[in-house]
Computed example of a mutant assay.
Amino acid sequence: MGQQAVIRELFIRYAAGKSSVEERAALLAYLQGDPFPEAIPPVEELYVNDRIAPITVAESEAIFQFIVQQPVAAREIPMRPYRWWLRIAAVLLPLVAVSVLLYHYLRAPAMIRYSNTGTEVRVISLADGTRIHLNRHSAIRLAKNYLQQVRCEVWLEGEAFFDIARDANRRFTVHADVLEVSNLGTAFNINTNGGNPVVILNSGAVKVAAMQVSTVRILRPGEAAYFDAGSRALRVQRTDTLYHTAWKYNLLPFRAARLEEVLETIRQHYHIDTIIFKEEGIRGQQFTGYLTSNNLKQALVTLEQVFNLKITQENNQIVVNNKKS
C-alpha cells in the first residue's frame, strides 16, 4: 500500500473514532510536513449517514444561538503595497515642494528697492533713460538686471510718475495693487493709495489690466483708469492730468476747496497738530490753485496774500485770523 493510500486510511479511521494514539501521531506528523491534497479522502468516505447522530430542533437552535453570540475578533488587514507608496509620498512631497521653492528662489533675480521717506519728491533715473518721480511715503522695486530681460517689471507701493524710455525690444510693466500697467514708451502716473488704484496717462498709450476681474483697457492721453473696489469694475474717464500730477513738481493742487479743507491738507502733509480759526466765517472761503508741498512757510504766505489773512505757526499749530484783528 502506497503512502497516500495509508494516509487516506488514517483519515477515515480518525473520522470514525477508531484510530490509535500511534495512528493519530502519524497523521499529525504527516500534516505538519508537506501533505499531498490527493491523500485527503472526500467527505463521502469520512462519514456515512447512519453514523451521524440525529439532532433535535431545540439542540440545533441552541447551537445556532451559541455561535451568533460569540465575539468576532477584529480582522487586521495587511497594508497593501500601494499604501506604502502613500506613506513615502507623504514624506517626499513636502521635501519636493521645498526644493522647488528653493530652486525658484535661488534663480529669482536680485531685487533693488527705492523708497521716498523725505519731504520732497525723489527722482530716480534708470540706466535705460527711464525717469521715475517717487512721491512721499512711496516705494518701488525691480530686478537689478532688468536691462538683460525682455520685460522690465516694477512693483509700486504708493504713488509714482513714470517717464518711460522707448525701447521696442523691452516692455515696461508696473504692478500696482490689483492693476497691471504695460507700455513700450510713454509717461503716466499711478496712485495706489486709498484702496482704489488710479492710472493717469499723460502721453503715449498704456494697457491697463485689472487682475481680479480679467478686464483690459487701452488708455489715451488725458484719460484715467481706476479700479472701483466696491463694484469690482475697471472704469475709464477723462481727467485733468496736470492737476493729478502736480505733486511731482512739489505742489499741492486745490480746486474750489474750502479754506478749512486746504489747511487740513496742509496739516496732514506737514504733520501739524491742530488748526485754530479765530473767526468762524473764515473757514468757508474757497481756494483754487497750487501750494508748495516742500515749504510750509511759503504755502502759508500764499494763503495770507490770497485771502488777506494773518496765519501764524506756533507750537506745531496753525492759527488763522483776519489781518485787521
Rank of each mutant, 00 (worst) to 15 (best):
F36Q: 15
T119E: 13
L201H: 00
S125C: 05
N315I: 08
A97C: 15
D128R: 00
N135I: 06
L10A: 03
E264P: 04
T241A: 02
A168I: 06
A143V: 01
E45P: 00
K310T: 09
R24D: 08
F162A: 03
Y30G: 05
L252G: 08
K324C: 04
Y105K: 09
T239F: 06
E280F: 04
N169M: 10
K248S: 09
D273V: 10
L291M: 10
V21F: 11
F188N: 06
A143Q: 01
V100D: 03
I276V: 14
V6E: 15
A62R: 15
A127N: 03
L201P: 03
P54V: 08
W84P: 00
S182R: 04
E223H: 07
F227H: 03
L134N: 00
A29F: 04
L46I: 03
N49I: 14
W155T: 08
V123T: 15
L102S: 10
Q298T: 11
A209Y: 12
T292C: 03
R217G: 02
V206L: 06
D34T: 13
R83M: 13
A29D: 11
L126Q: 05
Y243C: 03
F188W: 00
A246I: 05
G17E: 01
E314N: 09
N49F: 14
V72T: 11
I63V: 14
I200D: 04
L156H: 05
R8S: 07
S60L: 07
Q285C: 07
A39M: 02
Q313T: 12
V96Q: 02
E261G: 01
T302N: 09
K324S: 14
A246Y: 07
E76G: 04
F277I: 01
G230M: 14
V198F: 01
A299K: 00
G204Q: 05
Q148D: 05
A229C: 01
R151S: 04
A160Y: 04
E261A: 10
H137R: 12
L303P: 06
N169T: 07
S138C: 07
E279N: 11
H271M: 09
Q69A: 15
